[in-house]
C-alpha cells in the first residue's frame, strides 16, 4: 500500500483549443489549484484526437488520458467535432478493455471556457482515481514498455 500512496500517475490531456484549453487557462487565471500530474497537448478540436494518439500515450507509460472538448450539442467551434469525439472515445474504451487497460483510464469530458473550476475538479478526480487503480498495466510489471 505504501508504494501505491507514493504513486504519482502521469496523465496526458488532449484539450480542444476553443473551449477546454480556454477552461484550463481560466483555472490558471483564477489560481484554482490542482495536482501537477497532467501534461496538456493542445489540439484544434476534440474531433482531431486520433485513437492512435491515445494508444501512443498509454504505450509510453501514461496512466490516464483525458480528452476534453466543447459541450454538446452546439458549443463546438467546428459544428460537430465533439460528437465525433464522443463516438470515437466510446469505441476506444471498449478496445482498451481488450488490451487489458481499464477503460476508466480514458476520460472524455466537456469543459467550456468558463469552467476553470470544473477542469481542476476533473484533474483532481482523475488523479485520485488513478492512484487507486495503480500504474498503467502496460508498465506495471517490468517498468519497461
Amino acid at each position: 500500500m505504501s508504494e501505491e500512496s507514493d504513486f504519482e500517475p502521469k496523465i496526458i490531456g488532449f484539450l480542444c483549443n476553443w473551449c477546454s484549453y480556454a477552461g484550463a487557462d481560466l483555472a490558471g487565471v483564477s489560481r484554482i489549484q490542482y495536482p501537477p500530474n497532467i501534461r496538456i497537448i493542445r489540439v484544434m478540436c476534440s474531433g482531431r484526437v486520433d485513437p492512435a494518439f491515445i494508444l501512443e500515450a498509454f504505450k509510453n507509460g501514461a496512466d490516464g488520458v483525458l480528452v476534453a472538448g466543447c459541450h454538446l450539442p452546439s458549443d463546438c467551434h467546428y459544428i460537430s467535432g465533439n460528437f465525433k469525439a464522443s463516438r470515437r472515445i466510446a469505441l476506444l474504451q471498449r478496445l482498451l478493455q481488450d488490451l487489458g487497460i481499464e477503460p476508466q483510464r480514458l476520460r472524455l469530458e466537456w469543459v467550456s471556457a468558463s469552467e476553470g473550476d470544473k477542469f481542476a475538479t476533473i484533474v483532481r478526480e482523475m488523479v485520485e482515481q488513478l492512484k487507486k487503480l495503480g500504474p498503467n498495466p502496460l508498465t506495471k510489471d517490468g517498468g519497461e514498455i
Binding site: 496526458i12 497537448i41 489540439v43 484544434m44 478540436c45 474531433g47 482531431r48 484526437v49 486520433d50 492512435a52 494518439f53 501512443e56 500515450a57 509510453n60 501514461a62 467551434h77 467546428y78 467535432g81 465525433k84 470515437r88
Partner: peptide
Amino acid sequence: CGVCGTACPTKAITLGHFTTGEILAQVK
C-alpha cells in the same frame, strides 16, 4: 479542425501544424 484526418482509414489526410507525426512525438 482535422476531423477528416482522424477518420481517414489510410492515414492519407493530415492537418497542418497538428500532423499525426507531430502530435505523436509530443505525446511521447
